[in-house]
Computed example of a mutant assay.
Amino acid sequence: MADTPMDEIDEPSGALPRRRRTVWWPAALAAAVALCLGVPALVASGTSASSTVSAAPSTDSPEAGFARDMATHHQQAIDMSFIIRDRTDNAEVRGLAFDIINTQANQRGMLMGWLAQWGLTQASPNPPMAWMHMDQQYQPHDGSLMPGMATNTQLAQLQSLSGKAAEIFYLQLMIQHHKGGAAMAQGYVDVAKNAAEKSLAQSMVASQTSEIQLMTTMLAERGAQPLPD
């Protein structure tokens, strides 16, 4: 959690009233770094500088699909963490939220940077996670586009809570979110052809699994349990 802080920012239009606070937002820097390091990353994955263009993943590849879908998945985790930031004064929960904001904003910047480096769009007409070729595709509903994502109704409920109640619901939602994210990341690891992106996905599996254990302990300390699967 030792990233560089940015200046204080105003809350977005329509957000709940809250104090101006210093926040951490390295996504723009991460995207720039990813763009600058895109060619070395591809070289590290087994390509040469002269073959970078021809070796770039296609728009329907698992590499592109994972980058797009995980970026969307990460964005909701960031949004939920910004919500809880001002719904509680608990240092432990706020620290976890800041950590998720920093980590997932950085990772999202890398994923978007790779798409730009490959000359691919950030969106696709394909259904979410189609690149995984699952026997049964997830059915999006009420804003939940992929496994683990909260619904619009749940996000509204989180915004209506404060204190311990908000902490518990945030932890419950984030455990579900991490389970879905870790499963998707492992799904990409199993079919990955790009070494740099595979390494990032492996780090997601490890870190989110660890955070699930931490959040489960934090829930127990508050007399609560994770939501049923």
Results as ranks from 00 to 15, higher is better:
V189W: 06
V189C: 14
D190W: 15
D190R: 15
D190N: 15
D190I: 15
V191L: 12
V191W: 01
V191Q: 11
V191N: 01
V191C: 09
A192N: 03
N194M: 11
N194V: 07
N194A: 13
A195I: 02
A195L: 09
A196H: 00
A196V: 08
A196P: 01
A196E: 04
A196R: 04
A196S: 13
A196N: 09
E197A: 05
E197W: 00
E197L: 15
K198G: 05
K198A: 08
S199A: 15
S199Y: 11
L200S: 03
L200M: 11
L200P: 03
L200A: 09
L200R: 08
L200H: 04
L200I: 07
L200N: 01
L200Q: 03
A201V: 10
A201M: 08
A201P: 04
A201W: 09
A201E: 10
A201D: 08
Q202M: 13
Q202K: 10
Q202S: 11
S203L: 07
S203H: 11
S203Q: 14
S203T: 06
M204T: 11
M204G: 00
M204L: 14
M204F: 01
M204Y: 03
V205G: 02
V205N: 08
V205F: 03
V205K: 07
V205R: 02
V205H: 08
A206W: 10
A206V: 10
A206P: 01
A206D: 14
A206R: 10
S207P: 03
Q208G: 02
Q208R: 02
Q208I: 03
T209G: 13
T209D: 11
S210L: 10
S210G: 10
S210E: 14
E211W: 06
E211Q: 15
E211M: 06
I212W: 12
I212C: 00
I212E: 00
I212L: 03
Q213N: 15
Q213G: 14
L214I: 12
L214C: 08
M215A: 06
M215I: 06
M215E: 02
M215S: 01
M215Q: 05
M215T: 08
T216E: 14
T217Q: 15
T217W: 05
M218A: 06
L219W: 12
L219I: 12
L219Q: 07
L219N: 14
A220G: 02
A220P: 07
A220C: 02
A220M: 08
E221Y: 09
R222N: 11
R222E: 06
G223P: 05
G223K: 12
G223M: 06
G223V: 06
G223R: 11
A224Q: 11
Q225C: 05
Q225H: 12
